[in-house]
């Protein structure tokens, strides 16, 4: 495990290291492995599947003792290496805001409830 609150550079280094490891395991089947940068898209450019991402997050949870995706950040919002780094930064910053997603969810629930009530009447 890293320091109590790892820096952005430490998080990035760890993420790149584990992405590389996962891709190397797949390389025997999928081909060559290039450089990995913050701007890289996890799926479209690096070729990580959703299961590869789950493997990465599981490993990072053990290494960083952090899982930002249980409540703080929806995993579906993570597209790039930078998004992933940002999720862990957010976790360690103690920022519990979600950019309005909880409000959106609440509003969606309200609409669903209204639809149910309308269909009963």
């Amino acid at each position: 495990m890293l320091n109590e609150v790892p820096s952005k550079q430490e998080i990035l280094k760890l993420i790149v290291e584990h992405i590389r490891q996962i891709l190397e395991e797949k390389a025997a089947h999928d081909g060559k492995l290039g450089d990995i940068g913050e701007e890289n898209r996890l799926g479209a450019e690096l070729g990580l599947s959703s299961l590869d991402l789950a493997q990465l997050v599981a490993t990072l949870e053990m290494r960083l003792k952090a899982d930002p995706f249980q409540e703080l950040v929806p995993i579906t919002s993570v597209r790039t290496v930078s998004d992933l780094v940002g999720a862990y930064e957010k976790f360690f910053s103690g920022d519990t805001s979600d950019g309005g997603q909880a409000d959106a969810l609440l509003e969606s629930k309200r609409r669903a409830e209204a639809r149910r009530n309308n269909s009963r009447s």
Binding site: E25, L51, A54, Q55, A58, T59, E61, M62
Partner: peptide
């Protein structure tokens, strides 16, 4: 458990 298993594939 699957999170543990994924780490070792």
């Amino acid at each position: 458990c699957s999170k543990q298993m994924l780490q070792h594939a």
